[in-house]
């Protein structure tokens, strides 16, 4: 994939314009998951799609897709570990997975910070995991590698 220059001018220019839009939309879906339909998984899927689009358009050598591809596997694990760490932080408020970060004003971004953080961790996990899976299947990489995408 690294030797490809990406797709034609039209796709590259349009991707350049749309990439930010898709990414912002995905992040918004994840960050407002506690208020509106969506959440970490839906947002993560959209974010992964943005990066898939970027890597298809610009090729594997440059652009945000290439950068993300190098980090996807580590970010995937980081997201999962972050979720577990946040879950353990719940012990500070009494028990596993408790709402440790308090509550804010209802119907705003900060209304339940702990859920927002959990959503972010899932976003990282799903976004990076899906993208890593895409790359693994696209590159015929180690078969067993994609088994880890299942626990999101």
């Amino acid at each position: 994939m690294s030797d490809q220059q990406g797709m034609s001018l039209i796709v590259r220019v349009v991707t350049r314009w749309l990439f930010g839009l898709i990414l912002v939309f995905g992040l918004a879906v994840a960050l407002f998951g506690h208020l509106t339909p969506g959440g970490g998984f839906a947002g993560g899927t959209i974010v992964a799609c943005a990066f898939v689009l970027a890597i298809l358009a610009f090729g594997g050598a440059r652009g945000p897709g290439a950068t993300f591809a190098r980090w996807a596997s580590s970010l995937d694990a980081t997201g999962a570990l972050a979720f577990l760490a946040l879950a353990i932080l719940g012990y500070t408020a009494g028990a596993f997975l408790h709402q440790w970060a308090g509550k804010g004003e209802a119907f705003t971004l900060g209304s339940t910070p702990s859920i927002v953080l959990l959503n972010l961790a899932i976003l990282l996990k799903v976004g990076a995991g899906l993208f890593a899976g895409f790359i693994a299947v696209a590159l015929f990489e180690q078969t067993a590698e994609s088994g880890k995408g299942a626990d999101a």
């Binding site: 590259r12 350049r16 990439f19 440059r62 652009g63 945000p64 950068t67």
Partner: peptide
């Protein structure tokens, strides 16, 4: 996001 698009 703006930073991530720098090398395109």
């Amino acid at each position: 996001i703006a930073y991530s698009l720098r090398d395109v």
